[in-house]
Every structure is written in C-alpha cells, then in structure tokens.
Design a protein around this nucleic acid. Structure first.
Length: 491
RNA sequence: GACCCCGUCGUCCAGUCGGUCAGGACACCAGUCUUUCAAGCUGGUAACGGGGGUUCAAAUCCCCUCGGGGUCACCA
C-alpha cells in the first residue's frame, strides 16, 4: 500500500515568520500540490512561555499573503497535551522512559563543570536506574520530576532525501526529556506523535533539525510507529553567513510586504533559494513551480538571501502587471505615505493610472512609486543639488523658464504633442538645443534630474500645475542668485 | 569541545555514467538606444577553498587539511 502524500509546516508561534520559515512552508506546499497530497499546518505551541497570539497571527498573515493554503484543520499542540502525556506514560510503562528528579540547577552545574574540564556533556543517567524505594522517597518529598527517554544502544541510520545516508552513534546522545515537570511535552515527543498520528509521509524541514532526527527516529521505534521519510533543506543564512536572526536584518514577511514586494515575486525568489528546476529558468509562475518541483532539485548548500536579486525579480513582475492590476496596491502604498487621501474621484483615479504607466518601467518595488514619483502628487519640496549645478547654472535660465511658462500658458490644449511642439519651437527660436530647456524644466517640475519623459509628465500634471511649478522655480533661481554669490566668497 | 551537515564567479543556481572554452541569473563594467533616469539589446570582468592521490583525462572518485554552518535545553 502506498502511503498518501502528506506533509506539514510546523512553526512555533514565538516570533514572526521570516524568509527561512516561509521557504520551508513553500517547499512543503509545492510538494503537496505537485503530488496531489495534503499540506497540513501545525502550531507547535507547547512552550507556554514563549508562544504568543500575535506571533501566530503574523505567521498566518504571512502564509496567506504568499498564497500558501493548508488542508484540513490547523492543529494546535497545546490542545493535545493529554495525548502526548499518554504516549509518554506508555513509554514509561514499557521501561523505555523513566522519571528523572534531577533539578535544573544541578544539571546546569554539572554541564558547566563538564565544559570547564572540556568533557563532552550529556545527561549522566543519575535517575536511569533508581530503585523503587528511592523513587518513593523523592515522590514523598514532592520533588518535581520529568520523564526522560532511555536512549538505546547502537546506531541510528537513515536515508535523508537530500543528504543521503546519515549515521549517528546513539551513545553520543544523552537520555533526553520528553515530558516536562509541568506536564507539557517537549518538541521531540510532540512532533513525533503528531507526525505519526496524522500520517505525515515526508518530513521536509530545515537543516537545523538534522541532528534531532536520530532522537525522533528512536521515538518512532519505541512508540511502535513507522517513521516517515526525511528531507533536510539547507538553511538560509544572513549576509554574515550566520543563521538568520533579527540581529542581522532577517526580515519578516510583513516587512517585505511593507517595502513593496509582490507576493508572487517573493514566492518565485524563495523557491529558487536552495532549489532549482534543473534548467536555467529564473522567472517562474506558481504553476510552473509546482510542476517542476522535486526533492532531487534541492541543494545541499546553505544559501545567503540576496535582496538585490529579489528586487530585480520584483521589478520583472511589476512591469508585467498592467496599471489597472497595480492600481490597488499602488494606491495603498501612496496612502500609507501620505500622498493620497481616502477619497479618490475619477480624475485622481486617472492620474494614478497614468502615473503607474509612466513609472512602471523604472520601478522595482511598490514603494518606489513614492520615492520616484512623489512629485506627481505634490510640488517638489527641494531641488537636487546636482541638478541645480548642471541645469540651472546658466544665468539665462530664469528668462528661459519664464519664456516656457508664457508659451505654455498660451496653449489651448495641453496634450503631449502640443506641449512638445511648443517647447521645441521655443528652443528653436531661442537658438538653443531642446535639452537646454528640457532639463531645467524637469528640475523645476520634479526637483529631479531624471524621470519619465518630460512631455508625458507635463500632460499628467496639467497646465496649471506646470506653470505654477515653473514660476516657483523661477523665483527660486532668482532668489538664489545673490546669496549664492556671497556664499561662494565666504566659503 | 564532541557529533552531524556543507564547500563551483561577490551572491543565487546548472554541471546525469570522470572528457564542457566550467553554463545561466542578480550585481558590476562597457557599448547601444534616448530629452534624463530606467527598461531593452549587445558585449565584458569574475569561480571549482587548499594539498595529495587514482586515471590518458578529475569540479566530478578516494584521503588529508582548512573554512563555514547546525545540534548537543524541562526552546522549537
């Protein structure tokens, strides 16, 4: 009988969902979707202290944003404590586990001592063979107890689907706790019981669990469960080659969303981190990913998250979406940055749409619409220094801009072609190249030395705004004249 | 420290059974286009951690070494 394909993502709600976790979830999801299996979501909240509702919400939001939907009901380990306890009792009865009364303080002391003497530390088995009498005494004294698993002798060998055969000598592993003194199970126990009971066929998870696998395998064996297969995906490292953590900029998915990344770009990028379709494809749709995904394509090497490549990919996705498609996201971004109010009439709707069209080719993140396009919505608050030096240094600038303003004011219509013709004609009459007008005008209108085609920009802004900004610039140039001369002398 | 995993351009990936000018992408540089910036197009710089073997031939197989990471919790 072939086992049903069933995988799971099992985060613990102790922090936000970062790219490493998200990628693990994605791989599991892709695997399930590819083979028509199930993708389960299990919340590992057996640690009461560290689990929080906010973290859970962040994880759920992240999965939802990426479009990773799960099958069946979400499993909360905190609601299954009785179950784990029962299995611990079974092990106890069969002599495969035992009560341990060692205090955490005492153990910590021993551990430190071992470290000082450079001896490898593992639990020394103090309580491994307590007599009934001793145990009764400790019980009578009310000493807190945990349940420890009795690690059997021998070796634990398994075939990891990405690493191949992995061998552990059991005696390098100390008897480990499976049930805490507060009656809550420890990760290893809860994970094994759940994976076994829910019929997980493949445990696909981070490399950091590779060393935990022998412990879990021993538990499967002791509990009489058949073990699933394992595949350990390399981890995602920070730029310093260290494990991802808040310290060196491991960002949550929420942050990527806030920064203007599209979920499809993030999914695509994450999929390519530690996995490859085998050919050299880079940009892949979700369906292509599902189709191409395979465990064989998973690399063994840990990877560093390269945000610049994600930016590029995001730009690709941004570019292929129509302005209409992008509208909602862009509006939201503009709003959070105060460039747009709640109310949007037809006119500003049109304006946003055109803005998107003009900016789309030069944008990599949604937030670039703000950074690169604020002047579509408000007069520039400053002029680029470089621009002033380059395009406004000529003493004739004020006069020329004035001429432009006059010329444009007299225009009947204000369409791209008319504007362009007017500006170029004026340049001709002034006997200067069109660039001599174009660049100073751009600076006046946007405060920038670069941007979309100037004539398109002018049409979007409208005659009134264009003329207003030109006049402002003229005033500015004139005002700068004298103070500038003085400051040159002074410095 | 013990144990486990990993090691191809700066970064992410290709490289089936040993034979490739070691390939693609991001980034970078140059050219092209253009009113600017992007985008696009064309081209370029750039890697098998090191040392030994085996072999006619090694990124690919073996050994050693160095480097990086992970696990050794009443965290997950």
């Amino acid at each position: 009988m072939t086992k049903e394909v069933k995988v799971r993502f099992a985060p613990s709600p102790t922090g936000y969902l970062h790219v490493g976790g998200a990628r693990t979830a994605l791989f599991n999801w892709l695997y399930a979707r590819k083979y028509g299996g199930k993708f389960l979501l299990r919340i590992e909240d057996t640690d009461q202290e560290r689990s929080s509702a906010e973290a859970l919400q962040a994880i759920l939001d992240g999965l939802k944003w990426l479009g990773l939907d799960w099958d069946e009901e979400m499993i909360f380990q905190s609601k299954r404590v009785e179950l784990y306890r029962r299995y611990c009792q079974n092990l106890l009865q069969e002599g495969k586990a035992y009560y341990c009364y060692c205090s955490p303080e005492r153990l910590e002391e021993k551990r430190r001592q071992a470290q000082k003497e450079k001896r490898p530390w593992k639990y020394d088995g103090t309580c491994r063979a307590l007599s009934d009498k001793e145990r009764e005494r400790l019980e009578r004294d009310g000493i807190p107890r945990v349940i420890r698993f009795r690690v059997p002798e021998g070796k634990t060998i398994f075939q990891d689907l990405v690493h191949g055969e992995v061998v552990f000598e059991n005696d390098t592993i100390g008897d480990f706790v499976i049930l805490r003194s507060d009656g809550h199970p420890v990760y290893q126990m809860a994970a094994v019981v759940d994976d076994a009971l829910t019929g997980i066929s493949l445990v696909l998870r981070g490399d950091d669990h590779l060393s935990n696998t022998p412990k879990q395998l021993m538990l499967y064996e002791a509990l009489g469960f058949s073990a699933p297969r394992f595949a350990h995906v390399p981890q995602i490292l920070g730029p310093d080659r260290k494990r991802l953590s808040k310290r060196h900029g491991a960002k949550s998915l929420t942050e990527y969303k806030m920064e203007g990344y599209l979920p499809e770009a993030v999914v695509n990028f994450l999929a390519l981190l530690g996995w490859s379709p085998g050919d050299n494809r880079e940009k892949m749709t979700i369906d292509e990913l599902i189709d191409a995904f395979s465990i064989e394509g998973i690399s063994k090497k840990s990877a560093i998250f390269d945000e610049r490549k994600l930016e590029w990919l995001n730009g690709q996705y941004l570019r292929e979406r129509s302005s209409k498609d992008l509208f909602k996201d862009v509006v939201e971004t503009l709003r959070t940055h105060g460039l747009l109010g709640e109310e949007i009439d037809d006119q500003s709707r049109e304006r946003v749409l055109t803005t998107i069209d003009l900016l789309k080719e030069r944008v990599r993140k949604l937030t670039d619409f703000v950074d690169l396009g604020s002047y579509f919505f408000q007069d520039p608050v400053a002029y680029e220094e470089k621009g002033k030096r380059k395009h406004w240094a000529d003493p004739a600038v004020a006069v020329r801009l004035q001429a432009v303003a006059d010329e444009l004011s007299n225009l009947d219509g204000f369409a791209v072609d008319e504007i362009e013709k007017a500006v170029r004609n004026l340049a001709g009459r002034l006997k200067i190249g069109a660039g001599e007008l174009i660049h100073p005008i751009r600076l006046a209108l946007s405060g920038r030395t670069f941007g979309p085609g100037l004539f398109e920009l002018m049409e979007v802004l409208g005659k009134e705004t264009v003329v207003r900004r030109l006049r402002k610039a003229i005033d500015y140039v004139k005002a700068q004249k004298e103070p500038n001369d003085i400051s040159v002398k002074a410095s």
